[in-house]
């Protein structure tokens, strides 16, 4: 017991990380604590301590704007993560063919990830703007009936966001999955060929399952990207047209700054925290079980 405690906590390391620990505890834990606390109050422009129970949550879930935001984040998240995984894997397989100029391609695919989402959003906004981008260019070339303006249509604006998200994120997924792919022993491929297993089947049944770790890493990064989508929405649509592309983070900021309703905004923020907590608890459980299994084997 004594030994395992010392193995886990090195005194110099603990001292070195104290500032980080203080910041983390101060900003995150205390900040989150107050958010949750205020979500049970009737705070308007400024926080108060007039507790109203779950009233803010009832009003939140009755607000169509919030419901649209929740729908949007699920749609955006599922679409962009699944497409990113598929495209990222296909790109990684393409890169793994020992193509020439691999470095050049990798830089091109990774470039979008190096840009902030605001820049990504602005670039895509220009491309999709009817008066500046693709539509204007095609019309200038003589195709006067060409019409392509997804951002101003409430039905298609969310797809434009998804495309921008994929453009931004599939490169880094490719880089992570490529590293995983390179880690698969060449003899596994040979064995599968001798066994007569088609290449696609080898990918699906043998290689992809071996890359669980790489997929998990890519997935976590994608999830972070979904949470960060606030910038992209603000840069590309501002949540519009109307409320068509509103997302929970956009909703929270609007409630606090524009509609001056801190109580309900904090209720929304607390709702955003819930799925994160569920994921954290789940991954913690998985890690704990794996550790226990490893210790049992040693």
């Amino acid at each position: 017991m004594q030994r395992s405690w010392r193995r886990r906590f090195h005194l110099p390391a603990v001292i070195g990380t104290i500032p980080m620990i203080l910041v983390a505890v101060g900003v995150f834990v205390i900040g989150i604590g107050f958010s949750v606390l205020w979500s049970f109050t009737s705070s308007k422009l400024f926080p108060t301590y007039d507790f109203v129970g779950l009233a803010q949550y009832r009003r939140l879930w009755a607000d169509s704007r919030w419901l649209v935001s929740v729908n949007n984040i699920w749609f955006f998240g599922l679409m962009s993560i699944s497409c990113n995984m598929v495209f990222g894997y296909l790109l990684a397989v393409f890169m793994d063919q020992r193509i020439r100029q691999e470095d050049l391609f990798r830089s091109i695919f990774l470039y979008p990830f190096a840009m902030s989402l605001i820049v990504t959003g602005l670039v895509w906004q220009w491309v999709l703007d009817p008066n500046l981008g693709l539509q204007a260019a095609m019309r200038n070339l003589g195709w006067s009936s060409f019409s392509f303006a997804p951002l101003v249509d409430a039905n298609t604006a969310i797809y434009a966001l998804v495309v921008a998200g994929i453009w931004q994120g599939s490169g880094v997924t490719m880089a992570i999955l490529l590293a995983g792919l390179r880690g698969v022993d060449e003899e596994i491929w040979k064995a599968a060929r001798v066994d007569g297993i088609p290449t696609w089947r080898t990918h699906l049944s043998i290689v992809a399952p071996m890359m669980k770790g790489a997929f998990a890493t890519a997935f976590v990064l994608q999830c972070v990207g979904v949470v960060r989508v606030y910038d992209l929405v603000i840069a590309m649509t501002g949540g519009g047209p109307g409320i068509a592309t509103s997302m929970p983070a956009v909703y929270v900021i609007q409630l606090i700054t524009v509609r001056q309703n801190v109580g309900q905004g904090m209720a929304a923020a607390t709702m955003m925290l819930l799925p994160v907590l569920v994921v954290l608890a789940f991954s913690g459980l998985v890690l704990w079980r794996r550790n226990r299994r490893q210790e049992a084997r040693v």
Binding site: E187, I188, A191, R193, D195
Partner: peptide, 17 residues
Amino acid sequence: EPKDRGIGMVFQSYALY
């Protein structure tokens, strides 16, 4: 193709799935 040659192969790294 390897599968049509009537051979089986065993590798140094075992290469099990």
